[in-house]
Design a protein around this nucleic acid. Structure first.
Length: 610
DNA sequence: GCAAGGTC
């Protein structure tokens, strides 16, 4: 019997289907000489400190540097504390039995670092010695799966990938467990003060933005505004110049030749500029982008959206949701026309769907090279029934985005009118010439760009128009907004470097903090620790969070760059570089940060433990 | 009691 092990049940089912294996057993599917079994993500984790004899949180244990790490079965939280997850134990027993009977083991966990680790931890925990082969595919279509099975790799080809994954795992344990205990002990052991490679830089981003906002001193400035009239259609224009002093603004304000000052047509049109602007449709959704949209439009937390997505996925209504890709391959694209066709009678999206059946589809979201383990989120085409309003809302966002992504670009006409009256004024207008993808939802535009979507009258250069009103407007500079879940998720993708451009953000996503699948839980961890709280839709630090931030803000553990540095080294390990060298550095760093944190003592004690 | 990673 050949055993195939996948990362999750859905993938095992898919593989079994391709092979025509149909006999459902407890924990695996059998047929055609194969058994297809699965994990549920990581079944094993690095054992906690107490399993190495570090009982209680004590200064003299630190730094805890296990010679050899142990694995333990994933725990689940119950009212009596943490216990071994029984479903995980059961699945491990099933996998063990299958491995014992196996004539060949085929590893079909996701094609990436963590997928490799998920299998290897199981393999070593079960003390399995049989050789294994690796299925390495980046698309789940029947053809890709068949091709992958014809082209299995020797398991040892991925030893260096496992090394890099293993290093990532142990390094996070060493730094996280030691720093957490060190800081907690330093503060008097009254509460858990956790630190980690990902959570601490995230906390630092929230704190530094909060402090920046709090200390922000708004600056007053002045601008002039006029209201013009062209054959009954009125429009507003603003002075190009800003003035720090009111008196300076007043001088030019007095020179405005408005009607009430006795000038019937005091606004001279110096220039009229019209140019079209094309807006391509948005890319399909990945996990992060839909979490952001759901937070902006519905106020759902990243965690809520993830669990809604999980249940839609389990109901077979949408494709795998924990994806970091906003693209699909050509094979998946081939199924899109059918998905769109099914929506022709949809009460809200029927018209858009109907239209799309008559035109060539936009292929901006089609790029097989940008599909990694999983493609962008799509509906499966399975009809949804009786969804709760929350599930319906998320489902509709996925359907709408699909229609938008394959739609035509939106064409706008930008008009800029320059007016002279004592000083120079500008009126900006945007008119949508062809709505394209924007017709799907008809959402008002994101107004954060300060772009006014109003239409301006047709005016001619050199003509003079009456100025009906003038005003001297007092304005003030604004601080950067506090983080909310949407802006934080976006910032985490690029380690706090906020990048507007979607494509550039994608290129940088490998240097982001955390992964799509873990970001929601990072936010929840910081809330559980009482480091941050939700206030309206914002995420703001608590006094405890700020106290921790003050202690660690200049240390490496609070810098997003630490992840970038690790990633660089891990990638070198994957291509064959020495493992021991990196481990020595991590050990040294663990010693350093432990000593530093233990020494911070009193400064944190009162502030963080109230 | 604690990390980050994956998933039901």
């Amino acid at each position: 019997m050949k055993i195939v092990i996948a990362e999750k049940p859905s993938v095992a089912r898919e593989l079994a289907k391709v092979f025509g294996a149909t006999t459902k057993k407890d924990g695996y599917i059998e047929g055609k000489g194969y058994s297809f079994t699965w994990a549920f993500g990581h079944l094993l984790q690095l054992a906690p400190p107490q399993e190495y004899g570090f009982i209680g949180w004590r200064r003299q244990h630190l730094p805890m540097l296990p010679k050899k790490f142990k694995l333990s079965v994933r725990k689940v939280k119950t009212k009596d504390g943490f216990i071994e997850d029984p479903s995980v134990r059961k699945q491990l027993d099933i996998i063990k039995k299958l491995f014992d009977e196996a004539t060949e083991i085929i590893v079909a966990t996701d094609a990436g670092r963590e997928g490799e680790l998920i299998f290897r931890y199981i393999y070593y925990y079960l003390k399995c010695k049989k050789p294994f082969k690796r299925l390495w595919i980046s698309s789940q279509t029947d053809e890709a799966i068949k091709e992958g099975f014809r082209n299995l790799k020797p398991g040892t080809d991925y030893d260096t990938l496992f090394n890099s994954a293993h290093c990532r795992s142990e390094s996070d344990w060493l730094v996280g467990m030691n720093a957490t205990q060190a800081l907690s002990i330093a503060a008097g052991n009254r509460t858990v003060l956790s630190l980690g490679r990902v959570q601490t830089p995230t906390l630092a981003m929230i704190c530094s933005r909060f402090i920046e906002t709090k200390n922000f001193v708004p600056k007053l400035f002045y601008q002039l505004s006029i209201l013009l009239d062209k054959d009954g259609q009125q429009f507003k224009a603003l002075s190009i110049a800003n003035f720090d002093k009111k008196e300076d603004a007043q001088v030019l304000f007095d020179k405005i030749q408005d009607v009430s000052a006795g000038f019937p047509t005091g606004g001279l049109i110096k220039d009229v500029e019209s140019k079209p602007r094309k807006e391509p449709p948005p890319l399909l959704h990945d996990l992060s982008s839909i979490q952001q949209e759901a937070n902006k439009k519905k106020g759902y937390t990243a965690d809520q959206t993830l669990s809604i997505l999980q249940s839609l996925y389990e109901g077979k209504l949408i494709s795998y949701p924990r994806t970091g890709s906003r693209y699909i391959g050509d094979d998946v694209f081939a199924g899109i026309p059918k998905l769109i066709d099914q929506l022709r009678n949809h009460p809200e999206f029927g018209k858009s769907a109907e239209f799309l059946t008559t035109v060539p589809l936009n292929k901006r979201s089609v790029n097989a090279k940008k599909v990694t383990d999983h493609h962008a989120i799509l509906p499966t085409g399975e009809p949804p029934y009786h969804l709760s309003s929350e599930k319906q809302a998320i489902y509709d966002m996925i359907v709408a985005r699909m229609l938008e992504a394959f739609h035509k670009e939106c064409v706008k006409e930008l008009t800029k009118i320059t007016i002279e009256s004592g000083s120079t004024f500008i009126a900006n207008g945007t008119v949508i010439r062809s709505a394209g993808w924007r017709s799907v939802l008809n959402d008002p535009e994101d107004d954060n760009k300060g772009e006014e979507s109003l239409s301006l009258p047709k005016v001619k250069k050199e003509e003079s128009l009456p100025i009906l009103e003038k005003a001297l407007v007092e304005k003030q500079t604004k601080p950067k907004p506090l983080y909310n879940e949407a802006s934080l998720l976006k910032a985490l993708e690029t380690s706090g470097k906020e990048i507007e451009d979607e494509e550039l953000r994608y290129a940088m996503k490998d240097s982001g903090l955390g992964t799509p699948a873990t970001r929601a839980s990072i936010i929840e961890t910081l809330i559980t620790r009482e480091y941050i709280k939700r206030e309206k839709r914002n995420l703001i630090p608590t006094d405890k969070g700020l106290a921790v931030y003050e202690v660690v803000k200049d240390q490496a553990i609070a810098q997003a760059e630490l992840t970038g540095q690790w990633e660089k080294r891990l990638e070198e390990i994957r291509s064959g570089a020495s493992v021991s060298e990196f481990k020595e550095e991590i050990t040294a760093y663990t010693r350093t940060i432990t000593t530093q944190l233990l020494g911070c003592g009193v400064s944190i004690a009162e502030k963080a433990t109230v």
